[in-house]
Amino acid sequence: MQLLKDKVVFLTGGTEGIGFECAKVFRAAGAQLSIIANCHESIERANEKLNGDDVLYVKADVSKGDEIKNAIEKTVERFGKINVIHNNAGISDPSKPLHETTEEEWGRLFDVNVKGLYNTTRYGINELIKTKGNILSTSSITAEIGQDIHAAYTATKGAINSLTKSMSIDYAHLGIRVNAIAPAGVWTPMLRNWSSQQPDPSSIEKYLDNIHLLGYCPEADVIADACLFLISEQARFITGCIMPVSAGAELGYRTNK
């Protein structure tokens, strides 16, 4: 069964990591894709593996409203509609406590992780009203439990969670669902880059395996499968949900590791 047959998904940050795994899973489920990324090279790499008349790539920075407005217009021009907006684009740098985070670093985190969601909603909501579509954002369990040397990053994910809940209330009468997915660790290029920045990079793989109750840090396909569920009609009665896909990493300390 193709859960996304005849659906059009507007996917930001869809050329690598969680986003690219989502792109593959969504397409296999029957969706047409508009994949947004701000790096020409990453678009080229993704296009080598995932291309066709059912996939549109648009180079755009989610933090810039005019570029997202243009990307929305190009998507509708190509496919005629938008059923789903998946706000997946995000950054995690820097690995610093709050007082060491520069104003530029703070601004960039919020521009990409939070303003990006604002821009896609502002310019895409009218299309979702037409299709009674839905919005999904990629958050993190760190929004709820915190994370050392990442105060600014976790603040952006907390903002995503709050927006998800408030937007679900605002748009429910329009038939629009709004949800978020909250991973713990996931092996992506961004996580590998993050690992190299930590005080003891050699210990990170074991650490990431241990924080997940099921004993390993997953690849991004496990997140993509959960995202597929949330944007499909299988989740038609779910809105305002922050769904952890974390193997129980947020459940607390363990003595029997």
Rank of each mutant, 00 (worst) to 15 (best):
V76A: 06
T138D: 01
V178F: 06
S168W: 09
N87R: 12
L174Q: 10
E250G: 10
G185I: 10
I82H: 03
P244A: 10
V178H: 07
Y253L: 08
I91D: 13
L117A: 08
I72R: 05
C39T: 13
S42H: 15
Y171L: 10
C22Q: 15
G124Q: 01
I82L: 01
F110V: 02
R122N: 04
G80Y: 07
Q147H: 08
N210V: 00
D66A: 08
A224P: 02
F229A: 09
E104T: 09
N119I: 00
T164I: 02
K81N: 10
Y123I: 00
G65I: 01
D54L: 06
E73C: 07
R122A: 03
C22E: 15
I176P: 06
S139T: 10
W106G: 05
R177E: 08
T120M: 06
A37V: 13
E219C: 13
I85R: 10
L191M: 15
V178Y: 06
A184M: 04
K257T: 14
A172P: 08
A184E: 04
D221S: 14
M190S: 09
R122M: 03
R108C: 04
T101M: 10
I82F: 06
N256R: 07
Q197I: 08
C217A: 12
G116N: 00
S139W: 06
N51C: 14
G13F: 03
Q234V: 12
E205H: 11
W106K: 02
A184N: 05
K81A: 12
A71W: 04
A143F: 07
N70C: 11
F26R: 13
Q234L: 14
M167G: 07
K115Q: 05
E205I: 11
T138I: 01
E44I: 04
K130G: 03
E105C: 03
K5Q: 14
Y171M: 11
D66E: 14
G107R: 00
T142Q: 14
S92A: 12
N210P: 01
A220I: 12
Y253K: 10
S196K: 13
M190L: 13
I145L: 02
Q197F: 05
L214R: 12
A60F: 05
G240W: 11
G107Y: 00
H212D: 00
C22D: 15
Q147E: 06
V112N: 01
G146I: 01
L98G: 05
E103W: 04
K69R: 13
G13S: 14
E205V: 12
I211M: 02
V58T: 09
L117I: 07
P201G: 03
I68E: 03
E105A: 10
E127T: 01
N47D: 15
I242G: 06
A235Q: 06
R45P: 09
K132D: 03
N87F: 00
I91E: 13
P189C: 07
R45F: 04
